[in-house]
């Protein structure tokens, strides 16, 4: 057995701490590197929405495709570039500092998620299930959910 823990290194790491499984859905907290306060979610839909909101706020990774909507398209509002040569996420980092999120734990399960790309209107990246110290790749948000669901069912 090695003591080397699976780790991810990225500016947009998100730690999803699942505390409960109720009504066939997941409840928990989302931690990210730029705040001391976690964001609460009461279902997977809200989890996805919060995560996508963070990625949009950081503008990282950038979306390859424009958002579709049943409504008239609204222009995405990104943080104002103080310096156009600097990435939005670098500004966020400067303003808020960086915290470690890989030490957070949920009562049911913990997933450390890196979204590397936002292509084909979905996400691609890596996820670590902290409790089993396993790392997996996903090609879509749905595959990420499937991976999380498998670990949560094992419990």
């Amino acid at each position: 057995m090695s003591d080397n823990k699976q780790m991810l290194y990225a500016r947009n790491l998100i730690s999803v701490c699942v505390d409960g499984v109720e009504n066939g859905d997941y409840q928990g907290w989302i931690w990210h590197q730029y705040s001391d306060e976690p964001l609460e979610f009461e279902g997977f839909l809200q989890m996805l929405s919060i995560m996508e909101g963070l990625l949009d706020e950081w503008d990282f990774p950038q979306k390859a495709l424009a958002t579709r909507s049943f409504f008239k398209q609204e222009k995405p509002v990104y943080k104002k570039h103080v310096n156009p040569d600097e990435l939005v996420i670098d500004q966020v980092q400067k303003e808020n500092g960086v915290r470690n999120v890989q030490n957070k734990r949920g009562k049911r399960a913990t997933f450390i998620v890196q979204v590397s790309f936002r292509q084909r209107a979905t996400w691609q990246g890596h996820v670590i299930h902290a409790e089993s110290d396993e790392k997996k790749d996903y090609q879509s948000a749905m595959e990420l959910l499937r991976i999380m669901d498998e670990y949560l069912r094992e419990k």
Binding site: L45, L48, S49, E52, L65, T67, R68, S69, F70, F71, K72, R120, A121, T122, W123, S140, A141, M142
Partner: peptide, 26 residues
């Protein structure tokens, strides 16, 4: 109204957007 979706995430966001959207449509 119809929209094409290119991923399950986009499908969810379309439906969620419709549920959260303005009551008076454009």
């Amino acid at each position: 109204k119809s929209e094409h979706f290119r991923s399950a995430l986009e499908l969810i966001k379309l439906i969620d957007g419709a549920m959260h959207g303005k009551l008076s449509l454009h």
